[in-house]
Amino acid sequence: MANELKKTGGEVARTDSEDTRETGPFYRPATDIIEKGDKVTVVIDMPGVAPENVDVSVENRSLTVRGTIDTPAPEGYRRVYAEYAPGTFERAFSLPETIDADKIDATLRDGVLTLSLSKSEAAKPKQIEVKAA
């Protein structure tokens, strides 16, 4: 533990554990998934997250959403009761092969992240015309 401390000019600057305190604990956000036709909508609750603090990424057909809560304490007040705490929302979803990973649209409004996913062209049902011989 002692060698984790980094010293700057005789003063202890920070430890590794302090780094994790900045992002705080991780929370799994409540999610709804709706499918209609060739559209899949993923709705994720992320209260206290500003649009610039959301990160949506796709890697190896795994979709990861991450949002850092940015709610400054009201100035001149001290907290006397708490049911929720700052931290980071994070959740990963595995994308089925039928989803086009290049066409994902993300919007954040009133602390709700909405991801619009489309099924790939290949996965869409096709009508095959039967020709008369």
Binding site: P74, Y77, R78, V80
Partner: peptide, 16 residues
């Protein structure tokens, strides 16, 4: 969450 000041109180609520 509840926050107390000198002559006022603040209630914050997560309601996405």
């Amino acid at each position: 969450n509840m926050w107390l000041g000198d002559d006022s109180v603040v209630v914050t609520a997560e309601m996405p």
